[in-house]
Design a protein around this nucleic acid. Structure first.
Lengths: 195, 195
DNA sequence: GTCTATAGATCGATAGAC
DNA sequence: GTCTATCGATCTATAGAC
């Protein structure tokens, strides 16, 4: 795994991001040293600074990349349908997307406090954009009389918090398939939000 | 605030725990030094070791104390009633208890990975005990035909995840009172779980 | 029970050779 | 683009005086 000479592989950048993502998720940003990341990649610590100006920037770009991919991926989903089927689409998309990259999700929620103030603002803005996508669906559903929620802002946060919980217990090859999980959560979301 | 001489106040122990709780919640366990905690309390770093054998033990006892208090406090709640009113009692209790001590809640969920293996097992056991309290209510409700959930284990985790979300946005003096928040969340939980 | 002082390790980041 | 070497700061934890 680790090498004592330069890799010359031309993919050191991605490998640094992969190693940092995994180590940050496992031990936490503050607990992981640049030397640990370098060891994982198979280079010396100094070499990392050819790819990132500092440790903070490494964290920020991991989180920014995750949030950007989340928004782009939701944007690529087929739209259309009534608000109820849009809510189902969001529920299933959220579960599937987040279960596919547990480390990035973990970091995006746990390491906010380790961002510099400017970087924190940038990430929070992306998160709010995603929350707004869900709240728009709920608002439309309420207007159309299809959905009934006591407060669309709180309902938005409640649904996302509930769905995020999947990542804390789901394991591949466990009792339930991904589709079964989607069905179970969708039933709970539907009954909580439907008129 | 900080003093250059010993406090001689006789309450250094609690003040250390208070300072550690707040600093760990704000910056993360790994990012906080013993010197920072000592400065906050007004003693030198070495004096902390009269109260804790090491930093790990300080974290563990904060988390253990929180979980023990949570279980004891739920045990003190008046029981009785049908499973629907028990579920309402749990929902309201959970929100109220967790909003009263956001720092301890934050640490109990965020710093699990910084516990030593033995300490992790101990905390996880306490957490499972709390989850079982809710799952028992759901199971009883399903048996009695009052509640309808696709999977009691998943519903337990979904409800707790949803309720925990309150701590991420609620602020004292905000748009909604504590009672209004309880009502809103209880309506969503009730509709998601009721037959 | 707190102080001062420090051992011994490790950190982020940089300099300069190749 | 990676290496070796290192600066200066900081860390946890301990020793011994008072």
């Amino acid at each position: 795994m680790a090498r004592t000479q330069g890799s010359h592989s031309g993919i050191t950048g991605p490998r640094i991001r992969d190693a940092a993502l995994r180590l940050f998720a496992q031990h936490g940003f503050a607990a992981v040293s640049m030397r640990q990341i370098a060891r994982e990649v198979g280079v010396q610590a100094g070499a990392l600074y050819n790819y990132t100006p500092d440790k903070q920037s490494l964290l920020f770009h991991l989180m920014e990349g995750h949030m950007t991919e989340l928004l782009a991926s939701w944007g690529d989903q087929p739209g259309g349908g009534d608000s109820l089927s849009q809510l189902e689409a969001f529920t299933r998309f959220h579960i599937r997307f987040h279960l596919q990259r547990p480390d990035a999700v973990f970091i995006a929620y746990m390491e906010l406090r380790n961002l510099s103030p400017e970087n924190f603002i940038a990430i929070e803005s992306l998160r709010r954009e995603y929350e707004n996508a869900l709240e728009s669906i709920l608002k439309k559903g309420v207007t159309e009389g299809v959905l009934l929620v006591p407060d669309t802002k709180i309902a938005t946060l409640a649904v996302i918090a509930m769905l995020n919980g999947v990542n804390t217990w789901y394991r591949d090859g466990g009792r339930l398939s991904l589709d079964q999980v989607e069905v179970i959560y969708w039933e709970m979301v539907r009954r909580a939000m439907m008129v």
